[in-house]
């Protein structure tokens, strides 16, 4: 029991997520219960607008939770200050980067900020981490390129390198394969899977590549309009949970190929 607790990196208990402003609360999803452990590669799937991004933003402390608890390394997320949090969770977002003169090396170096001194000086360890992250993602040859000279596939890898350089036990990625061709998609999946196993990180991604999620994820968080399932891909499959993903007559799930078909 104790060991399991140590391995728990993300725990959600009766969680309600959504958006708040001064007057209104817009609830996106309620009663979410799930956990993630060290070394797990988790794919969050669900149709557009079901609340995947809202959940990931809540887990990465961009949005406050509405009710229930989220524990990161067994500590309530709202009690962790931003500085400490930056040593626990790194993110890869879908945000468009503002135009700048940043090179690939400089971008990845920004991932070291939680570790650098007050004036952002890179130590030997910092430089080693940056080079290492560039090697792992196979982008070391791009190190002096301006980030606006990169293709979408290259940029995605470099952003992942940045989160690796941040050296956190948890990495959360919002649709990291969205704009990529099939080769870069599979490369990204393999890279993330490898990271979870080799460096024992918890990796959470949201994705629409359901067949690869089934093939490669250790655990799938499946979000539908009414429910939230967390289980291994095989268990979800034998319980026919994927049929609930799109409640539409247009597509059906084919268990043989792990793909959706036009019915």
């Amino acid at each position: 029991m104790l060991k399991e607790n140590i391995d728990n990196t993300i725990t959600a208990d009766n969680l309600t997520i959504g958006y708040t402003d001064k007057k209104n609360v817009k609830i996106v999803k309620t009663t979410l219960n799930f956990k993630a452990v060290k070394g797990e590669f988790i794919c969050l799937i669900g149709k557009n607008g079901v609340g995947k991004s809202t959940l990931l933003k809540t887990l990465s402390k961009v949005l406050p939770k509405i009710e229930g608890t989220v524990l990161i390394h067994n500590k309530a997320i709202e009690l962790i200050d931003q500085k400490t949090f930056s040593n626990l969770v790194s993110v890869v977002l879908t945000d468009q980067l503002p135009e700048s003169n940043l090179t690939v090396f400089e971008l990845v170096a920004l991932g070291r900020q939680p570790h650098t001194n007050w004036i952002d000086k890179l130590s030997k360890t910092d430089k080693y981490s940056i080079i290492n992250a560039l090697r792992i993602t196979n982008t070391i040859h791009l190190k002096n390129n301006n980030i606006f000279e990169l293709s979408d596939g290259q940029l995605q890898k470099v952003l992942i390198a940045r989160s690796i350089a941040q050296d956190t036990p948890i990495i959360i990625l919002d649709e990291p394969t969205a704009h990529l061709d099939i080769q870069h998609k599979i490369e990204t999946f393999q890279l993330l899977k490898r990271l979870s196993k080799e460096v024992n990180k918890t990796i959470v991604i949201s994705t629409h590549e359901i067949h690869w999620a089934i093939e490669m994820a250790d655990r799938i968080w499946l979000m539908t309009d009414s429910d939230f399932y967390t289980d291994t891909p095989n268990n979800l499959k034998s319980n026919n949970r994927f049929d609930e993903l799109f409640k539409s007559d247009l597509v059906t799930f084919d268990a043989k190929t792990n793909q959706f078909k036009i019915s």
Partner: peptide, 24 residues
């Protein structure tokens, strides 16, 4: 401004990334 160099650099990635790097 010297103490703002770090947050200024992280703002080059946008506010969400800056926040994820520990910037208030």
């Amino acid at each position: 401004i010297l103490w703002l160099i770090k947050p200024l650099n992280s703002l080059l990635l946008g506010e969400n990334y800056a926040q994820s790097l520990g910037v208030n």
